[in-house]
Write a protein that binds this DNA or RNA. Structure first.
Lengths: 329, 329
DNA sequence: TCCAGAAACTTGAACGATCCAATCCTGCCT
DNA sequence: AGGCAGGATTGGATCGTTCAAGTTTCTGGA
């Protein structure tokens, strides 16, 4: 077994001092070209890798980013996180960071975990997925000047902290315009109870698109908790009361329920979901697709901007979704 | 801002030496009860947390476990990994370890990543999901005495390294027996091309269950790459050629395709999938369910067994799946 | 040729924990 | 009372890196 290769080994091999090797790695421009080459050759020849623990001890930086992994709730929307995490890991890697996972069952415990991760592992930053009005987590992190980004806008104040989000309103608006373009006039919306930022945003897109087209949305809107059964129930109600010719839903779960409600009753009704989950692809459901890989990449961009010395407040990023057309609309 | 709390701060506060504090943390039994209490009080009062980087530098152990996160392929089976990772993070946390993510596009690059993770971060162990015949990754790790567990058997030699797996044959056998019990006799199987350990295993369960019931499986078996369209194609073929009354599939993707093929043709045909993915739950597909949380927990058990000094070779773990009954069977 | 100033490189110290070996108690026995 | 065994406690060294400060080498202008 090969003995450990440290910076001292490399220094000896290249006949320079430890510090010069360190400079080649961290500040190449202050080392003469010829020397640098010699050191780099030694590094390659010996297969040297900088020990992260030692580096961290001195610099206080771990090059680690934390992200939370949730239990798949109703399951359908879980895959969004899955895809986001993959993108995050890939981009972080390219930027020289790695992603550490954590879980938490509620906000208090999550905050306790922050303390642990920061104290024990000296994490450099956090990526939070999803925020709500008055989120205690972002407040806690901001109070302590811990770098973090959220995937999802801070609904209280858009300049509260760096964020990346997908324009949900634009997504539902696009879906609605697509339906209008196909000749539909009675386009319903099934969404979530008012008060959640994401839900209100998606609702607004539908309403605004109808207004813009001179269509009155009154009576065409229903709200409920997320779920397949809930979507089915509300769609049945819509079919009976206002007989829409199409429906836009705030999630694929709701859309799937809506599909089940119309099957056998009026298969002509068009349905569009939200999130472009695997389920949507599987059943041929047209759905609004979020650029998750891109979102993850921009999260890493914002973080590295903050971490690698850029002192300007980073600009939030709002990405545009696209419509994945399938045969339900 | 509070200044940093180190082991020296705690020692001063409790009027003992650094070493005594260290002993309280790492070998409590050798410290007198009264002293230990005083130290623990100081730790709590100061909110001290052992710095992982410093500890790691001395001990060479990072308390970090690596797991790979894949891009969701056709999407449906991705959620399996998702759920497994969540379980892994939770159990590892309880055991004092954290999970670090990595990605890789092929075996060579994955092995290069191992080198990087080991050299730079001094990872303690790896968890690999899925293995194949002659897997170069496990060989590489075993050659270097890097602790690792696989979720999935080493198909070449069952004692090659520690593993946790779910008994796929038992799953398809159970599904088949369920169908037999419901009166079906012509039970088909749609699986993957011969040669993959997992696929062959699932096929065997179906075949053996039929044999045991005195039913001849000849002609009732089809194989293809995984995918919804593929499942649909083979199911159409089966319906035309052998007209089965039920079908067991090697994955939910295939089962979903099969469902689409029978819709409108012969809705009476029963279908059972494999993996109990969210899609299955969403469309009401009966499916073989793997105990993923349990599997993840056992992976951590095996690893901590190896890492925390247990020198016996750990016993592999084979878990039993269960059948999630829904309305397709 | 000489010298100032910059550039290139070297040396000592520090980060915060654990390990090791030496010392200090404490209680017990004679 | 003295000695001794054993456990509890202590100080010093160490892990591999970067920071801060010091020393040598190079460059160019008078």
């Amino acid at each position: 077994m090969a003995e450990k290769v440290t910076i001292a080994t490399v220094a000896r091999h290249a006949r320079v001092s430890r510090q010069t090797v360190s400079n080649v790695l961290n500040a190449p421009h202050i080392v003469r070209q010829e020397t640098r080459q010699r050191v780099e050759d030694a590094i390659n020849a010996l297969g040297y890798r900088a020990n992260q623990a030692a580096r961290q001890m001195r610099t206080g930086r771990s090059r680690l980013i934390a992200a939370r992994i949730d239990p798949t709730r109703d399951g359908i929307n879980g895959s969004v996180l899955d895809r986001f995490l993959h993108g995050l890991t890939e981009t972080a890697d390219a930027a020289g960071y790695r992603v550490l996972l954590y879980t938490a069952t509620d906000d208090d415990r999550e905050i306790a975990t922050y303390g642990d991760l920061l104290g024990t592992y000296e994490l450099d930053a956090f990526v939070l997925v999803g925020t709500k009005y008055g989120d205690p987590r972002t407040t806690w992190l901001a109070d302590r000047d811990v770098p973090f980004v959220t995937f999802g806008r801070p609904w209280d104040a858009l300049d509260a902290h760096p964020w990346v989000d997908v324009d949900g309103a634009a997504g539902t608006a696009q879906a609605t315009r697509h339906l209008l373009g196909a000749g539909h006039q009675r386009i319903a919306f099934i969404g979530w109870p008012a008060g959640s930022g994401v839900g209100d945003d998606r609702l607004a897109g539908w309403r605004d698109a109808l207004h813009a087209a001179g269509v009155d949305p009154t009576g065409l809107h229903r709200e409920t908790e997320d779920g397949i059964a809930e979507g089915e129930r509300l769609m049945r109600d819509l079919l009976v009361t206002v007989a829409p010719s199409a429906v836009v839903c705030a999630s694929d779960s709701l859309a799937l329920g809506a599909l089940q409600a119309i099957r056998g009753v009026d298969p002509q009704v068009s349905v569009i979901g939200f999130d472009d989950t695997p389920v949507a692809a599987a059943v041929g459901l047209t759905s609004v697709s979020q650029p998750l890989g891109e979102a993850a990449a921009r999260c890493v961009d914002l973080l590295t901007g903050v971490l690698d010395g850029d002192h300007e407040t980073p600009t939030p990023v709002l990405l545009q979704p696209s419509l994945a057309l399938r045969h339900t609309a």
